[in-house]
Amino acid sequence: MKKVFHGFGLGLRKDYYSEILATQPAVDWFEIISENYFVDGGKPLYFLDAIREQYPIAMHGVSLSIGSTDPLNKLYLKKLKSLADRINPIFISDHLCWTGVGGINSHDLLPLPYTEASIKHVVERIHYVQDFLERQILVENLSSYVTFAESDMAEWDFVSEVVERADCLLLLDINNIYVSARNHQFDPIDYLKGVPAQRVMQHHLAGHSDYGEYIIDTHDAPVVDPVWQLYKVAAELFGPVSTMIERDDNMPVFSELLAELNYARTIAEPIYTQQQTSVVLPTAGRYHFASPTMAMSVQEQHNG
């Protein structure tokens, strides 16, 4: 199966519903926060359905808690599957993390110890989720602020083992790599080079808050120059990867987000054009990944 490139997208936020429908901006796709649409009706679904008629939609979750030792939440999975069946998303993703234990929700994305035991635990749960949804999912690397003393491998080695053994895909958040590299003092290029290129299906780009000795992933500011530079390296290493801008606070006028998105295009598209290559993904097996009517293969994109 050829790697599917959907172009350049934005996070779909309620601030922009009406403007998107009125102006139909030059955005290739939008990404929703899945949990915001676990409702039976009302304005969220009304606008989602209307925008879905014009644009492909990706689903991005924050509550799967794939790394927790609590049982997977079956009601949550049913709601996730129902929404996916409704909108046929190009991606379903969540974070490689845990969000709570013992029935207590931390309301945060918490890192895992990078150990063989953690790999086995997470892989088993990803298999279950993919079987339940009948789709491959993407898992996203975190920004982190603490590490575990028992970790015995680098984060990128841990992530690589998880996605390979689980036969899932990787949402590689470029800002998160930069944040964690600064906080834990590793080379972000080592991270990029350490993950399996054929599994990288999506990129996130976002802003953060810099406090000098540490930085926090806040999604409330424009993407900074070092992250753009890291994104350029990612484009060179991974080839065409669907990319989006995340913004969740201090929401700017929509035109500012469009300008950021177009800047991502100016970085990546010349590299993609120069490469003129298609990338083959691992066989998806019994899972389906993206609607064939929604995107071209990389090779088809290049050939016009």
Rank of each mutant, 00 (worst) to 15 (best):
I215Y: 10
K120V: 01
V62W: 08
I92N: 07
I119A: 09
V163Y: 05
Y191P: 07
V163C: 14
P71C: 12
H208G: 02
F8G: 12
I20F: 12
D217M: 02
P196S: 11
I174D: 08
P282I: 13
D15M: 05
V4R: 05
S34T: 12
Q24T: 05
F30C: 06
V129N: 05
V159E: 01
L230P: 04
L83I: 06
L133Y: 09
S255N: 09
T218V: 03
L133S: 04
F238V: 10
H60V: 05
I33C: 01
G11C: 13
V139D: 11
V195N: 14
Y37Q: 02
M201H: 12
V39H: 14
D28F: 08
E134I: 06
S34D: 02
L192A: 13
H6Y: 12
I215E: 13
G304L: 12
N250H: 14
Q276D: 15
Q185I: 10
D131Y: 07
T218P: 02
V280C: 01
F91K: 01
A84Y: 07
A268Q: 08
E124V: 10
R265H: 06
V195L: 15
V159P: 00
Q276I: 04
L77K: 14
G102H: 04
F186D: 04
W29P: 06
L45V: 10
N105D: 15
F186H: 06
F8M: 09
K43S: 13
I32R: 08
I90Q: 12
P111A: 09
L142F: 10
K193Y: 13
L80A: 15
E155R: 10
T69R: 15
L133G: 08
S180Y: 12
R52E: 07
L72I: 11
A268R: 11
H60N: 07
R182T: 10
L230S: 05
K3G: 12
D210E: 11
P56T: 05
L261C: 09
L112N: 03
I20H: 06
R247L: 11
I57H: 03
H208I: 03
W98S: 03
S209C: 10
L110P: 14
S297F: 04
E246Y: 02
L261I: 03
L72K: 09
N175K: 04
Q275E: 12
H184I: 05
Q276P: 00
Y211W: 06
T147K: 02
P240D: 06
P71Q: 08
E116C: 06
A221M: 02
F238E: 05
V123K: 14
N36W: 05
L80I: 00
G207Q: 11
F289P: 03
Y37T: 11
P25N: 13
P292Q: 12
N88G: 09
C168N: 09
S255C: 04
S68W: 10
A166F: 04
E260N: 10
S106F: 15
G41H: 02
V139K: 07
N175Q: 09
Y46R: 15
V200P: 03
W228C: 00
D157S: 09
N105S: 15
T23W: 14
A268C: 12
S118F: 01
K81L: 10
N303S: 15
M294F: 07
R13K: 14
A206Q: 05
D167N: 15
K232F: 00
T243I: 03
Q130S: 02
I271Q: 07
D190V: 07
P240Y: 01
Q54T: 10
E300M: 07
